[in-house]
Computed example of a mutant assay.
Amino acid sequence: MTDDAILQGCLRNDTSAQRELYNRYSPKMLSVCYRFAHHREDAEDMLQEGFIKVFSQIHTFQNKGAFEGWIRRIIVHTCINHLKKNKKFNESVDIIHATSVQVREESVPSIVQAKQVVECIRLLPIGYRTVLNLYAIEGYSHKEIAEMLDIEESTSRSQYTRAKQMLEDILVKKKIIMRPREKTNWLGVAAGR
């Protein structure tokens, strides 16, 4: 069944089309939820809530952009709202982790398994994890993140910087990456060269 056929079926409230949409996109969207959630149960709750919104708002999809992208935006916003509703975003974090490491760029060595990195991201405090996911993985700007989370843009930037450092510390501690002996980037190129 094509995305268009699924969309048309869902607009008619056809349960087989709704089941097909859920079966096709729920595994990818669960992985999105999993990055925001602390426990699998929370991720599953976010997923279910997100798909309820997808089905109730499907009539608003205007065929501008990818259908999967539209679903993903709803899921991401559902995750954020879930965290806000449960007041999980405002967990306090230690300010001691405030140096920088590049994560957004394609600089992580190819030997690092994506699953290991996701597991390490999940170890971050919820505020750091949320900003890191929104900026580095979902591609939102700090301005958009600030609006979504009701925080200052500078707070988003500092949370991201701290998240990157804490993530590097976790990756090093778990021996997924090695900290360079001299100031270098993750590709091993000395700084300033």
Rank of each mutant, 00 (worst) to 15 (best):
P180S: 14
V101N: 02
K85T: 08
K115Q: 14
P125E: 14
K84N: 07
D4M: 05
G127L: 09
V108I: 15
L30V: 10
E41P: 00
H142F: 13
G192W: 14
R40A: 12
I170L: 07
V189K: 09
E68I: 11
N133I: 15
I111K: 07
E20A: 13
Y160H: 14
F67G: 07
M166C: 11
Q8L: 11
S31Q: 11
Q159P: 00
R19H: 11
L11E: 07
I137R: 04
H97P: 00
G50C: 03
K164L: 15
K183G: 07
D42C: 04
T78M: 01
K174S: 13
R19K: 15
T2C: 02
T184V: 03
I126R: 04
H38F: 14
F61E: 00
R129P: 05
Q48G: 06
G127K: 08
A190Y: 10
L171K: 00
G139V: 04
N13Y: 06
T130F: 04
V118Y: 11
M148G: 04
E41M: 09
S56N: 13
M148V: 03
I170M: 03
V118N: 11
R122Q: 13
S26R: 00
G9W: 01
F51Y: 08
S156P: 09
K85L: 03
K173A: 15
S154W: 08
I80A: 02
S107H: 07
S110G: 08
K115I: 14
K53L: 14
Y128R: 13
I75P: 08
I95W: 00
Q62K: 10
F51Q: 06
N13V: 05
K85M: 04
F67Y: 07
G127C: 13
M1R: 08
Y140P: 03
S107K: 09
L124T: 02
K183S: 13
Q8T: 11
E44M: 10
Q102N: 12
E49T: 10
A190S: 12
D3K: 01
D42Q: 09
S100P: 00
I137C: 10
L167N: 02
Q8F: 05
E168D: 10
S56A: 09
L7S: 01
R35N: 15
R179Q: 12
L21H: 02
I111G: 07
S16R: 06
E105D: 11
I96A: 12
K173I: 13
R19W: 05
F51L: 04
I151V: 14
Y135M: 06
A43M: 04
I52C: 04
D4E: 15
N23R: 05
A37Y: 06
F55A: 03
A163G: 09
N86F: 01
C79H: 01
Q159E: 12
D45M: 02
A163Y: 07
S154K: 11
K143R: 09
L7T: 03
Y128N: 10
L187I: 09
L123Q: 14
D150H: 04
D14H: 03
K64H: 10
I121P: 05
P109G: 03
I177N: 02
V117I: 15
I170E: 05
Q116P: 10
N90M: 09
I121T: 09
